[in-house]
């Protein structure tokens, strides 16, 4: 593997994600519709606090600890949430539309890819939750790549995208075990491991990732880490308002999150208490590290500025007045391209 010359990255603004799963479906329809991929969600959105998909993945280990590989395990299909089969035939075409209701066929599931949606945490009137969209982090120090005994995973020199070479993959799944984000899937038909490809065929044509381009909330920024005119460098490095998820896993993710602000708490008298965060600080620190509190302070400061009539470049970027500015130059219209399946 050669030296990675540039790194593509994504920033997701959690303050704007409405959990609509348009990203999830745009990815699904583009990449994971073949047999063996039914249960795969290369992009997923889960409610936090929550167990997510695969169930309780944050507690599974993997990645690195003190620079050394950290043992983990492969999540089962049930833990991922599997692909439920529904009685579509009966409901839609069986003439029983008025009696039969849509339900999962066979064994009833005990988990799903979005099972704990909107549960969150906290007690009324101070309940809280936010959505966490996830893709492969295309890490700078990819645990999957280092775990593979067959050199079947490469990190591309030109853009740092991490790809599984399915011709070299023999389905050993050491990568699934090693990935601490549990974003690698097993295709039991092709007998290879598969995961998010950062939409590299689109990227190569100047088109942003499907999950980013389709997002109705303008949550996702795309671009090169080092492009000082692009949104990633500005959000991550210049204004320092975007952080990796679970950096303690040691893989140096290239997906960054603008952490969620939340309304203040109500006190015992039902009065607004501005001094108490709705989402506990320690919870956000557990996800995004101690710097998350600085980031929230920066965002609040910028909001105060704009309320006073001042300009804030960082808020202007996050608001994304111009949709195309979110894509770091990868703003070509995919409909203008004649796509060929190779």
């Amino acid at each position: 593997m050669g030296e990675v010359k540039r790194q593509l990255a994504m920033v997701m603004d959690l303050n704007k994600c409405i959990g609509c799963q348009t990203c999830t479906i745009s990815c699904k329809r583009l990449w994971t519709r073949d047999e063996g991929m039914e249960y795969m969600w290369w992009n997923s959105v889960n409610t936090m606090p929550g167990l997510g998909t695969p169930k309780d993945w944050e507690q599974m280990g993997g990645g690195f600890r003190d620079g050394q590989p950290n043992a983990s395990r492969i999540p089962t299909r049930k833990e991922f949430g599997d692909a439920w089969e529904f009685n579509h035939e009966e409901v839609f075409f069986g003439g029983k539309g008025s009696e039969a209701h849509l339900q999962v066929k066979g064994e009833q599931p005990e988990w799903g890819p979005n099972w704990d949606e909107d549960q969150g945490a906290g007690e009324y009137p101070n309940g809280y939750y936010f959505y966490l969209p996830r893709i492969c982090n295309h890490c700078t120090h990819p645990a999957c790549l280092e775990a593979c005994p067959r050199q079947a995973i490469e990190k591309r020199e030109q853009d740092g995208i991490v790809l599984i070479n399915e011709d070299r993959c023999r389905g050993y799944r050491f990568c699934m075990e090693a990935c601490p984000y549990k974003k690698i899937y097993w295709n039991h038909v092709q007998k290879v491991a598969q995961k998010c490809i950062f939409c590299f065929p689109r990227i190569e044509q100047g088109v942003a990732n499907a999950c980013a381009r389709q997002c109705p909330g303008r949550v996702r920024f795309v671009g090169y880490r080092d492009d000082q005119n692009g949104p990633i460098w500005k959000l991550v490095d210049k204004y320092k308002v975007a952080l990796p998820l679970h950096s303690e896993f040691g893989t140096e993710p290239n997906v960054f999150y603008v952490p969620p602000l939340a309304p203040p708490r109500f006190d015992a008298n039902g009065e607004i208490d501005e001094n108490q965060p709705r989402i506990p600080n320690e919870y956000l620190v557990s996800l995004f590290g101690p710097r998350v509190l600085e980031v929230l302070a920066t965002l609040k400061g910028e909001m105060t500025k704009t309320r006073a009539g001042q300009k804030s470049e960082v808020l202007d970027i996050l608001i994304a007045y111009k949709w195309k500015d979110m894509f770091g130059g990868f703003d070509r219209d995919p409909a203008s391209i004649e796509w060929k399946k190779t």
């Binding site: 050394q68 043992a71 005994p149």
Partner: peptide
């Protein structure tokens, strides 16, 4: 003798 650190960590 396993070829990667992750495999050695997993199988120790």
């Amino acid at each position: 003798l396993q070829p990667t650190g992750a495999i050695r960590a997993a199988w120790t």
